[in-house]
Amino acid sequence: MAEVLVVADGTASGGVKKVTLEALTLARRLGEPAAVVLGAPGTADALAGPLAEYGAVKIYAAESDEIAGHLVAPKAEVLARLAGEVSPAAVLLASGQEGKEIAGRLAVKLDAGLLTDVSDIAADGTVTQVVFAGSTIVTAKANGLPVITVRSNSVTPEPAPAAGERVSVDATVSDAAKGARVLERVAEQKGSRPELTEAGVVVSGGRGVASAENFALIEELADLLGGAVGASRAAVDSGFYPHQFQVGQTGKTVSPQLYLAIGISGAIQHRAGMQTSKTIVAINKDDEAPIFELADYGIVGDLFKVVPQAVEEIRKRQG
């Protein structure tokens, strides 16, 4: 059976991202999953446990400081070399900024078919993509090697314990791929909330939240539900919350089990980032706010009354 290369994505806290486990689950439909870890020395061993548990028959470890110290190009170079050696049936990556960028370079190097933001893969290689603000579903396929980026929360990761045999691969990087040097990595994220695109629950605030201080209310509810915090563009532009938490057309696309939109009107560009959530709940004082058109459950009321009461009620129930 041909190998399917799955590029592993790590979390800030040193684990494997859920989207990688989803990709391993999808990869089994196309062949035998083999994980690829690209990073600083030590990265592969740290990720090996979950990768093997979710089906990685092999774990290709390409580790060097040069890979970690430069933007994207070294990863694509190492991956292209590996693909040349093992002739995979497909290459799967996570559909974030970096995953797409590696995929793009790889597709050019290998003259392959690039399929981004994929939410499902069939055994014959046909993929499903949700496009245009979640309004349209497309099926597509690659002619030649498929390079596929998988969108978070597309499938439930299923364990399938495999050998996870470690195979060290050549991690040397050409000078040409070392053009963009990473001088510094700065963490701005507060707290230990799940990452926005991976979270099962997302609690988002909009302009209605009215100030940066008031976002504490959104954070409090998110923490009680074990969720991530999101924001509308109006909230971000007003300086209430940092840009990396923006949900929508020009922000992140999320697809959690539960999405709460609080003080958000539901503009089409906001919907673009949350429309495929499983359950949508809205709190808005305007009963004509478009967000209610797609909410499974809506409270028409003042968020400054509804949210504190909900917080208190959850606390009471959780004891």
């Binding site: 800030a12 933007l71 900024q97 001088l183 701005e188 990396q244």
Partner: peptide
Amino acid sequence: TDEGYEVV
């Protein structure tokens, strides 16, 4: 980036 930013 998701976590903050990188200087490149």
